[in-house]
Amino acid sequence: MYIGSMIIILLIVIVLIAFFSLVPVGLWISAISARVPVGLGTLIGMRLRRVIPSRVVKPLIKAIKAGLDLEVNQLESHYLAGGDVDNTVDALIAAHRANIELDFSRAAAIDLAGRDVLEAVQTSVTPKVIRTPEFTGVAQNGVEVKVITQITVQSNIERIVGGAGEDTVIARVGEAVVSTVGETREHTDVLENPNSISKKVQQQGLGDGTAYAILSIDIAEMRIGDNIKAKLDIEKANADMEVAQAAASKRKAEAIALEQENRAAVVAAEAEVPRALSHALESGKLGVMDYYQMKNVQADTSMRESIAGEDSELSK
């Protein structure tokens, strides 16, 4: 009898543990107290479908308390599709309070498209300021002008899905800034009137096809960069100088080679002199006295050249 009672008690405990682990009773009580129609069967079904009930029921409670007409099946379907239920509900509440027309289907589509639907709603109410990176344009006189802009945008809920994002807006503004600077003749014209850039850029309809409406484009910072034309002129001059130096080196090498050839020819000719003298002596065309007289003349000439060289050194 005792063993049977223990078995019954154990079975009851096991059933209770299984029940409370399968059914979030506390969440169900919270829903009932908030007058949100969520049955125990629905909660058990969520468990079986591997849906975390709190991720669905808590946003549903919040939505109904805010006056939204949502059903648990809508939120559960969005959860199963991989959406952020809580963020989507917050976006719907924000839109409802700001009198922005946004139904659950569109909000869910925006969320599943990878956009932050809550941020989109907030930006449609309060415009967002995007600070761009530094863009570098070159004026017609060759001087760089570096510009940082601030773009004030407002989300367009109707174009969130399928519209280009923030990166596209920044890229378009950068391209427009660079082309506008390139149209100016002098870089000083841009410095004197920086608003001319923002006005021309804003007139180009850069927000077309994006998820934003561009309200204004303002110049945040502007500074002068390098003088590209001067750099190119210097590089060209250096290149011309290198070409000239190469040509001069070539001419010098050719002159040295020619000098060496001439010296070789002189040495070869000097080597023939003893042979010619010997042949002249043997043939009788040159006498011994003539030979000694020629040597004396050569010695006298060498002495005169030596004296002339010393005098020139002294005169320096």
Rank of each mutant, 00 (worst) to 15 (best):
V161H: 08
T168R: 15
A239Y: 06
G142K: 01
E76K: 15
A308F: 13
A299E: 06
F20P: 10
L112A: 11
G114W: 00
S105Q: 00
L215F: 03
G165C: 04
G41E: 07
D311R: 13
T152W: 06
G205Y: 03
G114S: 01
G207H: 09
I9H: 05
V125G: 02
T184A: 13
A31D: 00
L206I: 09
E166Y: 10
L40I: 14
V177W: 07
I52D: 01
A271Q: 06
A239N: 09
I214S: 11
L102G: 05
Y212A: 07
D116W: 04
D208Q: 15
S283E: 06
V273I: 13
N156S: 10
I12R: 11
A113R: 03
G182W: 13
N156I: 12
A108Y: 11
R275S: 07
A248F: 05
K128A: 04
S155L: 03
M222C: 01
N156V: 09
V267H: 08
R223A: 08
E310D: 05
I234C: 08
A244I: 12
E235S: 15
K250V: 14
A265W: 04
S216E: 06
I214L: 00
V288C: 06
N195C: 04
A253W: 02
T184R: 15
L92G: 09
V23L: 15
R97S: 01
I151Y: 09
Q140V: 06
P127F: 04
A248C: 01
W28V: 01
V143D: 00
A220H: 14
V169P: 04
V56H: 07
R55C: 13
R251V: 13
E282F: 12
D240C: 00
L112R: 07
E186N: 12
A34P: 00
N296D: 08
V243T: 11
I7K: 00
T188Q: 01
E76T: 14
E175N: 08
S33Q: 14
A276T: 13
T132I: 06
D300N: 10
K229I: 14
A308R: 11
D189K: 13
S283Y: 02
A164D: 09
M222L: 11
M289Q: 15
R106I: 11
G67C: 12
M1F: 00
A63M: 09
F135V: 03
V169C: 01
I12E: 00
